[in-house]
Nucleic acid binder design. Sequence first.
DNA 1: CTAAACCCTCCCCTGCGCTGGAGGGTCAAG
DNA 2: CTTGACCCTCCAGCGCAGGGGAGGGTTTAG
Lengths: 133, 133
Amino acid sequence: MRIGELATRTGLTVKALRFYEAAGVLPAPERRPSGYRDYDEAALTRLRFVRAAQAAGLTLAEIRQIVTVREHHGPPCRHVTALLEDHAVDLDRRIAELTALREEVRRLRDRADRLDPADCDTTAICHVIPTDG
Amino acid sequence: MRIGELATRTGLTVKALRFYEAAGVLPAPERRPSGYRDYDEAALTRLRFVRAAQAAGLTLAEIRQIVTVREHHGPPCRHVTALLEDHAVDLDRRIAELTALREEVRRLRDRADRLDPADCDTTAICHVIPTDG
DNA sequence: CTAAACCCTCCCCTGCGCTGGAGGGTCAAG
DNA sequence: CTTGACCCTCCAGCGCAGGGGAGGGTTTAG
């Protein structure tokens, strides 16, 4: 099938498919004499994997590593498990950061309700945001 | 003072200070005949505000808006409060997304411990990441 | 035969907050 | 006079996942 059909069947854009090929997560397909890409059904399987991996928070670079391991060294399961482990740790850290930030923002916002704009002088810019120093 | 001294006194880099000026969060200072920037003490106050606002999760574009409001329309407190409100909502959404993702990642990772790499076939790439379709 | 839909490559653009480097000028000390 | 530490402007790039559009060629239906 041509790239447009693959796009509609996967819900991706033609641009994205060409980008995936350049990124190394979708193998370069055969070409017709006209130069048009000609995909087989395996492309659908591959793209399902790419989407599932993206949904699990993996980057295209990581997905490329996985398919490379698969093609050269056999089942990449251990590698994938390590990647997931790293991502879980990373997510924990980012969630903790964002949660702390959210509490700080709410604290500032609640405090702002008890402040009078008239008390705010020019040099401070805005006393809703305290400079603490 | 010259830009290097301002940099060391604020802990920022010379590059960052010039960038802040271009971004409109730090006013362009006087210039010496040599063309060197010559800052006064107000620059320190301004930079303290910029850092505090960044710590509250505001972008430089938002900070530029705040100082613009301050300079043209008086106390920006109401504007700042609205910004903080928006950020809080946004943070809630992002935290919820990341939390859901983290649970999915942990679920996949735990499931992986119960899978045998030998069961993994080539077309599936890696059965640790199920394609569900 | 022609128009429309499709495809190709190539290069630039987005947001964010900077950083690095090239290629110069300035200023003080030795 | 020279060295070195500053300073200037302008250009380029990072990482991420593509999107937009120019300027062509191809296929297909009427």
